[in-house]
Simulated assay, not measured.
Amino acid sequence: MTDERHHRHPDSPSARYGSPVGGDHLLFLAEALRTFHDTGALAPSGPELVNALVVPVTSRPNRPISVLEVGAGTGVVTRRLARVLRTGDRLHVVEANPRFAERLREDPVLAARHPGVGLRLSACRVEELPECRPPAPEGALPEGALPEGSAQRYDVIVSGLPFTNFEPPQVRDLLDLYLRLLAPGGELTYFGYLGTTTARTLTAGPRRGARHRSVVRLLRRFEEAYGLGERTVWRNMPPARAHLLRAPGGRETWTPAGNPAVEPAGGAAPVAR
């Protein structure tokens, strides 16, 4: 990774919760109880959900690709990506939770990735990426950075953010940002848990239930505009639905109001993978 190397602190996640892989559930649960709004779950994604989220990478074009993972958590998806990426590929991992970011820095699977795969970790929110890039040595650029005025574009974005925990304007801004970060024709995956609208209304009251429904409607409009398909993963805790979407080929179709302006490129109906 491009972060500075450091010795393990006695209070680091690996020291407190065990090995980077074995302690995932304990660390995830601890952080979920402490900051559920940003974590959005009580356990990491299961293997079948992970497989659904990395479909754009496992069914990829035959050329190097650039992948952005947002909200990596303890790294269950990150490790899967590290295993399937090839020489020349780049993986940029964004994780705002400092304890999760520390776990990722210590992860042995990521450290043992193929030497031809570039890996960068940004310990910030995805909205803060420009401010989060490390300072470059004089006359050089940090790994993954582009000259001023350029924009980093990704072939694949995998989002683990809990959209339904956020306010609708924040979700709209994130979806718009993902479209700007994707290369033309790039693909995006994210997921949501099943049954959350009813549960949120019953447990948090009508006001939060209404906010939750507004976010769901916003996501549905986005999926109607760009969706390629979805997969329901019943063998996850809790059951979840993964969504696969594709950015248009150089055309802006997602407006700030959250309404599609034109049909997705090609006008094809969504196809489940």
Rank of each mutant, 00 (worst) to 15 (best):
Val216Met: 11
Ala247Val: 07
Ala204Leu: 15
Leu194Tyr: 03
Arg180Lys: 08
Thr203Ile: 10
Trp234Ser: 11
Glu230Asp: 10
Arg208Val: 09
Val171Thr: 05
Thr255Pro: 00
Gly186Phe: 02
Gly205Met: 09
Pro260Trp: 04
Val215Asn: 03
Asn259Lys: 14
Arg180Thr: 02
Gly229Ser: 11
Gly185Pro: 02
Arg241Glu: 01
Leu182His: 05
Arg235Asn: 10
Gly195Trp: 05
Ala247Ser: 14
Leu175Asn: 01
Thr253Met: 08
Thr232His: 09
Pro206Asp: 07
Pro239Glu: 08
Glu263Asn: 10
Arg241Ser: 04
Glu223Phe: 00
Thr201Tyr: 11
Asn236Tyr: 01
Leu174Val: 07
Gly186Gln: 02
Arg213Met: 08
Leu228Tyr: 02
Met237Asn: 12
Thr189Ile: 01
Arg208Gly: 00
Val215Ser: 07
Ala183Lys: 12
Glu230His: 10
Ala225Val: 04
Gly249Lys: 11
Leu194Arg: 09
Thr197Gln: 12
Thr189His: 04
Leu179Pro: 03
Arg251His: 11
Leu194Trp: 05
Leu228Trp: 02
Arg217Pro: 01
Thr255Arg: 15
Glu223Gly: 01
Ser214Val: 11
Gly249Leu: 15
His243Glu: 13
Gly209Val: 06
Arg211Asn: 10
Gly229Phe: 13
Arg208Ile: 10
Tyr226Ala: 12
Pro184Tyr: 04
Val171Pro: 04
Arg213Thr: 11
Glu224Ile: 00
Arg208Lys: 14
Arg251Thr: 13
Ala240Cys: 08
Leu219Cys: 08
Ala261Thr: 09
Leu219Ser: 06
Arg220Cys: 07
Val216Arg: 07
Arg231Gly: 00
Arg221Asp: 11
Arg231Asp: 00
Met237Trp: 12
Arg211Glu: 14
Ala257Cys: 07
Thr232Arg: 14
Arg200Asp: 00
His243Pro: 05
Leu202Thr: 09
Pro238Glu: 00
